[in-house]
Amino acid sequence: MAWDIEGNEKWTYEEIPLGAMTLEGGTGTKHLTGDWRVKRPVWDSEKCIHCLQCWMYCPDNSCKAKDEKMDGIDYEHCKGCGVCAQVCPVNALTMHVEKDIRAKGDEKELHEHAEKVLKEEEGK
């Protein structure tokens, strides 16, 4: 059975997988937690030395790495905890108030990105 997080509140006891098991891997990606964020980490690629400390510390796999290099932040899942900014040795990551950034009109960009991520997930 494909695991649909949207539908589980309607399951009867017979429909729930045994022991309330999740019958699919990596379902956390379907749960978009980016809108929990009060503060947003902003990455400065100029300053970054690609030590990947942020990638190691991020509890939500939201510091993305590509070819052993830092590759930006997944704002769909980043909850804004700020650990990346704390561990960054060169201040390439800084925390900013989310609503201020949104007020500047970055909201649209954010939304487009969210749609792209969801499409990719469905494609899998």
Binding site: N8, W11, Y13, L18, G19, M21, T22, T27
Partner: peptide, 23 residues
Amino acid sequence: PVSYGMFANLGNFYMETKLGQRK
């Protein structure tokens, strides 16, 4: 791949899981 020990919060499926155990 499966996950055990998931979260079943208010109004989710906690009661249904217990009913399953009783059955």
